[in-house]
C-alpha cells in the first residue's frame, strides 16, 4: 500500500514540553481516520505536525512522499487544514479571503463562487467582511476555501463544531466524494459522527502517542468519547 502519511517514533517538543512522544502512524489513500483522545492527548498537535507546522524533534515523518524533517514546507500546499483557527483576514470579505487562498495555493480561482454557494454563502453574505461574521460563518468561509482547493490530504480538527446540520452534511458529502477520488482524511472529533460520514479506522491518542488503532470498522463506532 502506498502511504500518504508515515510517522515513525515521532517526537515533537514545543516550548520544552513534549507534545508528541514517539507517535507511530501510517495511512494510505482513501481512508477516513477518526482521531480521538482526551484533552491534551496531542490530537491537534498531531494534525499540525502532519501539516508540517510543527518542527519534528526526532523520528521520521513522511507526508505525501515528502520528508518533513528535511523539507517541512514542501508538502504543505497539498494539505488542507481546517482547525480551531480559520486563517482568515478580518478586514477582507468572504469572497476575498477565498480568492486569496486560491491564488496563494495557485489553484483555479474560477471555483470561488461555486465553493461559496456550496456552503451557503451567496449574494451579499459573500461580500460581508469576516470581522462581522459569526464563528459558524467564519468556519464556512474556511470550508469553502478548502472545498475549492481540493487537497489530497484533509486534516480536520473538530470540523463540525459551530456548524449547522445542513453545513455539516455539505462537509460530509464533500469529504466522501473526495475520499472516493483517493484523498485521505484525518478527522479529530469529540462529537458522535452521524450522517453520511463513516470512518474506516479509529486511532486513539494518549500522552502524545497512538495507543489503539482499530481498522476496518464497517458499523458505526462513533460512540461518545468522554470529555
Amino acid at each position: 500500500m502506498q502511504s500518504l502519511v508515515s510517522f515513525k517514533k515521532v517526537i515533537v517538543v514545543s516550548g520544552n514540553f513534549p507534545i508528541l512522544t514517539g507517535l507511530d502512524f501510517e495511512t494510505g489513500p482513501g481512508e477516513v481516520v477518526l482521531v480521538k483522545g482526551r484533552n491534551g492527548a496531542g490530537k491537534t498537535s498531531f494534525l499540525r505536525a502532519v501539516a508540517g507546522l510543527l518542527r519534528i524533534t526526532k523520528g521520521s515523518a513522511l507526508v505525501l512522499g515528502v520528508d518533513l524533517i528535511s523539507n517541512p514546507a514542501d508538502a504543505r500546499h497539498r494539505v488542507g487544514l481546517l482547525g480551531h483557527e480559520t486563517f482568515l483576514y478580518e478586514d477582507l470579505t468572504a469572497k476575498e479571503n477565498v480568492t486569496f487562498v486560491l491564488k496563494a495555493t495557485r489553484s483555479n480561482i474560477s471555483k470561488v463562487d461555486a465553493a461559496l454557494s456550496a456552503v451557503g454563502l451567496t449574494g451579499r453574505l459573500s461580500d460581508l467582511r469576516v470581522s462581522s461574521m459569526s464563528a459558524g460563518q467564519r468556519k464556512k468561509v474556511a470550508l469553502a476555501a478548502l472545498l475549492a482547493r481540493e487537497p489530497e490530504l484533509w486534516l480536520l480538527d473538530e470540523p463540525h463544531a459551530a456548524l449547522d446540520s445542513w453545513t455539516r452534511e455539505v462537509l460530509d458529502t464533500a469529504i466522501n466524494s473526495s475520499v472516493a477520488n483517493g484523498a485521505t482524511v484525518l478527522l479529530v472529533s469529540h462529537e458522535p459522527l452521524h450522517g453520511s460520514l463513516m470512518p474506516t479506522r479509529v486511532v486513539e491518542l494518549a500522552g502524545g502517542k497512538v495507543i489503539t488503532d482499530t481498522r476496518d470498522i464497517k458499523p458505526v463506532v462513533a460512540e461518545k468519547v468522554p470529555l
Binding site: N39, G40, A41, S45, A206, G207
Partner: peptide, 9 residues
C-alpha cells in the same frame, strides 16, 4: 501514564 488526565498542553 497513557490516558492520564490533566496533560493539557
Amino acid at each position: 501514564e497513557p490516558g492520564m488526565e490533566s496533560m493539557q498542553v
